[in-house]
């Protein structure tokens, strides 16, 4: 419990920092506000890029872009994985066979190549990115939820409640949600972290919305800058987006793990 609070606090600080960066930091994230490739200073906390745009402002904006894509993906995965998992586990029979086939299909295909192809095919917009990442995120959730539902389904109280005439919604609400919802929530939180990395990967490859401020795009532009490693420009242009990516996904991952073990302990 203490660990969860600590990690959540760290995450909150990160969010506040970037929120401050978006709301109160005087530099603009879109327009040049200084010279090209200025080193960090009191004015430009993390310096500027080759176009003279402030790096900290870009990273702050990128954080909310990444986070919103991550959360939207997680929500989609939560819904798809939850509904399909419960349906397969509860109904059994043909539904189960079909859903299990889909789960295995999405788990077994190599994700990145397909994502790249799909991303290239459907065009570069944030919505498409969300859809593509969500399509590859629901399967593990559905698999877990399905297994859980199946074991619940066999438990005496569900068998009996069904025999007394309890409908599916009643059964889910009264007898299954308490066991399934935490599982769903935790798996979805894990999806958020993964989605941020995947979005950055796609952006790095140029498959994301080119206008949006994204960490992946920043990294791509930086690494594409000829001779970046001959100077020390990379220390304030490349490192900040990479570190914020690592830090935010790491914190999310740690939070998921802590919640998971807390829930398991409680069981």
């Amino acid at each position: 419990m203490k660990r969860i609070c600590l990690i959540a606090l760290a995450l909150m600080l990160l969010v506040l920092l970037f929120a401050w960066g978006v709301l109160f930091y005087p530099m603009d994230a879109e327009l040049p506000s200084g010279g090209s490739l200025e080193a960090p200073s009191a004015e430009h906390w993390l310096g500027t890029d080759n176009l003279g745009i402030d790096i900290f402002a870009q990273i702050s904006k990128g954080f909310f872009h990444s986070l919103s894509i991550g959360l939207a993906t997680a929500l989609a995965a939560f819904l798809i994985g939850g509904v399909l998992g419960v349906a397969a586990g509860y109904a059994g029979g043909k539904t189960d066979v079909l859903v299990e086939f889909l789960i295995n299909l999405f788990l077994s295909v190599p994700q990145l190549p397909i994502m790249i192809v799909a991303g290239a095919f459907f065009g570069q917009s944030s919505l498409n990115i969300i859809c593509i990442i969500a399509a590859f995120s629901w399967a593990p959730i559905a698999k877990q939820v399905r297994a859980r539902t199946m074991s619940l389904r066999r438990s005496g109280y569900l068998v009996l409640a069904r025999s007394y005439g309890g409908g599916l919604w009643y059964l889910f609400k009264t007898h299954m949600s308490r066991d399934i919802m935490p599982l769903l929530a935790i798996s979805s939180l894990a999806v958020t972290g993964r989605a941020i990395v995947q979005e950055s990967s796609l952006a790095f490859l140029g498959l994301s919305d080119p206008l949006a401020k994204s960490w992946g795009l920043m990294i791509a532009r930086c690494t594409a800058f000829k001779g970046i490693y001959f100077t020390n420009f990379w220390t304030w242009w490349l490192l900040p987006p990479v570190l914020s990516l690592v830090l935010s996904t790491l914190l999310l991952r740690l939070l998921t793990r802590a919640l998971e073990s807390y829930w398991l302990e409680k069981e």
């Binding site: 438990s155 005496g156 109280y157 007394y164 309890g166 009643y170 009264t174 308490r178």
Partner: peptide, 19 residues
């Protein structure tokens, strides 16, 4: 496993007639 551990005694016992 015959009873939902999170329910109260009254909820569990009155469930059949309710449903």
């Amino acid at each position: 496993t015959a009873l939902n551990p999170h329910m109260t005694v009254l909820q569990a016992v009155s469930e059949p007639r309710l449903l």
